[in-house]
């Protein structure tokens, strides 16, 4: 265990992430509405020691009832429309929806039109678009930190500083 912890300490020192601007927090809930799993991998990677999304106060929560932001990935399939709406309805106000990745934004979607419900914008009000196929963990982290800083005025981010 000692070698393992020493390894992790060394990794952290070598990455030397800059100090985060701690100005509140946002609770994120992710819904996969028909993605290829690429966006999920990159969103999960944004929590690894190389990006450490949590140091900004951005954490992924288990339930939409605890979330400020709904991160939606994938081209929306007809079967996921209902679960997606129910997740959104479960979120407390104020709430935001972010389209994560090109598919959710509605770019270059492929597939049988009978199985797809169209872009996310036609289903939920989208306030943030994070392009990329898939967006890199750095792009995800940057977009979410910007969202947190800009939404302080709208009282979405729970502000911890004066």
């Amino acid at each position: 265990m000692f070698v393992l912890l020493r390894h992790l300490g060394r990794v952290r020192r070598e990455i030397a992430l800059p100090r985060a601007q701690r100005c509140g927090s946002l609770a994120l809930r992710h819904v996969d509405a028909g993605s290829c799993n690429g966006c999920e991998h990159e969103l999960a990677a944004s929590a690894n020691p190389y990006y450490d999304l949590q140091r900004h106060g951005l954490g992924i929560v288990a339930s939409p009832r605890h979330a400020d932001v709904l991160l939606v990935t994938g081209q929306i399939t007809t079967r996921m429309v209902d679960p997606l709406r129910r997740a959104y309805d479960a979120m407390p106000e104020p709430r935001l929806v972010a389209a994560l990745g090109d598919c959710a934004i509605g770019h270059n979607t492929l597939g049988d039109p009978a199985q797809l419900a169209g872009p996310l914008e036609g289903i939920l009000p989208v306030s943030l678009r994070i392009p990329g196929c898939p967006p890199t963990p750095q792009q995800i982290a940057d977009a979410l930190v910007d969202l947190m800083l800009s939404s302080r005025s709208s009282k979405i981010a729970r502000c911890g500083c004066p």
């Binding site: 028909g34 399939t77 996921m80 679960p83 492929l110 597939g111 049988d112 199985q115």
Partner: peptide, 22 residues
């Protein structure tokens, strides 16, 4: 199959190169 996008059916009738994209 909540994420069934019908990619196989959508590839039918397309060129082999387009099939690769699917």
């Amino acid at each position: 199959f909540y994420k069934h996008r019908g990619l196989q059916i959508a590839a039918e009738g397309r060129s082999l190169a387009e099939g690769l994209r699917h």
